[in-house]
């Protein structure tokens, strides 16, 4: 297993190089340069030129790229053009915010989705199943900002409750953090649960038709043991696959939900960087997110091996 992980980590190198080139090209080939945005409409050409020279943007693209990569290897993601702050520490900070939100959302989503998905499968084609499937269809089709806005409206208008404005981390003040995170987490949890529920249903229906489930019943096990003890693990692979993808996307920052609930996460940070043509922030941020995504995939693969001993690398 250790050898496999090492191998996987090495195979990441070309992927990372590829991602870095694409990220770099996209941001630099898009029209609009930071100097004129920073200095405003009335800036003189000389001032713009001077700022460009200071930021190193007057050099040929290829030189800029290599400068960036050399710094990256040294762990230096550069400084924000806009705020002059070092990019990497800020990225990590914002990522931790997003990470807490993601964890809570996934927890909520799975706690709703897996039992309901199993129920739906066990009662396949019954009234209960029908209702659950309609609910999950709604969950998939309603955009998350609509759910979020609705939650905010209901709570504030009818119950006079507002989430706190000032952001805190979970490890500093868990109660306040929970108050901040709970609404966005429920919003995203609902969206996540729809997909997980559908996958759980499909996967369980398939598993419950297998011969070994009949064997489990023939041994005299109660139905609960048959479904959870024998069915759950055998149904997990597709659920983990979808779940891993969802987590990967969420860790990249749920921009709309962060915006709606004023959560200072990584999505907002990068979006802001894009508005201001803040090259180091956007380049570093997108690369960072890609790495996280690839890393989540690696963890999912490791979980596969752990679930199913037949999967070998």
């Amino acid at each position: 297993m250790g050898k496999y992980i090492l191998k996987r980590l090495f195979s990441l190198i070309p992927i990372i190089i590829g991602i870095s080139i694409i990220v770099f090209l996209i941001i630099h080939l898009v029209p609009g340069d930071p100097a004129s945005i920073i200095l405003g409409n009335n800036a003189t050409p000389e001032a713009i030129k001077a700022l460009n020279a200071k930021l190193g943007l007057d050099k040929p693209l290829i030189v800029q790229y290599f400068d960036w990569v050399v710094h990256l290897i040294q762990g230096n993601f550069g400084t924000s053009v806009q705020t002059d702050q070092s990019v990497l520490p800020t990225l990590i900070n914002k990522f931790l915010v997003t990470f807490q939100l993601t964890l809570l959302s996934v927890l909520i989503g799975w706690i709703i989705a897996i039992p309901l998905g199993i129920l739906s499968a066990v009662k396949a084609n019954s009234v209960v199943d029908f209702i659950l499937r309609i609910i999950s269809m709604l969950g998939i089709s309603i955009p998350n900002f609509a759910i979020g806005t609705l939650l905010l409206l209901i709570l504030s208008v009818y119950f006079g409750w507002y989430p706190p404005i000032d952001y805190v981390n979970f490890w500093d003040d868990p109660i306040s953090a929970l108050k901040i995170f709970i609404l966005p987490a429920i919003t995203m949890g609902i969206v996540l649960s729809a997909g997980i529920m559908r996958m759980t249903r499909t996967s369980f229906i398939e598993t419950l038709n297998k011969d070994f489930i009949r064997t489990a019943r023939a041994k005299g096990n109660p139905e609960g043991t048959v479904i959870v003890g024998h069915g759950l693990r055998n149904s997990m692979i597709p659920i983990i696959t979808i779940g891993g993808m969802q987590i990967g996307y969420l860790l990249g920052g749920a921009v709309i939900v962060e915006q709606l609930f004023s959560i200072p996460g990584i999505g907002q940070y990068i979006l802001n960087g894009i508005y201001h043509r803040d090259f180091p922030v956007v380049q570093g941020g997108v690369l960072f997110i890609s790495l996280i995504f690839v890393f989540v995939n690696l963890i999912v693969d490791i979980i596969y091996c752990w679930i199913d001993p037949r999967i070998k690398y």
């Binding site: 297998k210 011969d211 070994f212 009949r214 064997t215 489990a216 024998h230 693990r233 055998n234 679930i307 199913d308 001993p309 037949r310």
Partner: peptide, 10 residues
């Protein structure tokens, strides 16, 4: 069917 009547993950 001995190939399918055992739980593959236990």
């Amino acid at each position: 069917e001995p190939m399918t009547s055992l739980n593959p993950l236990h």
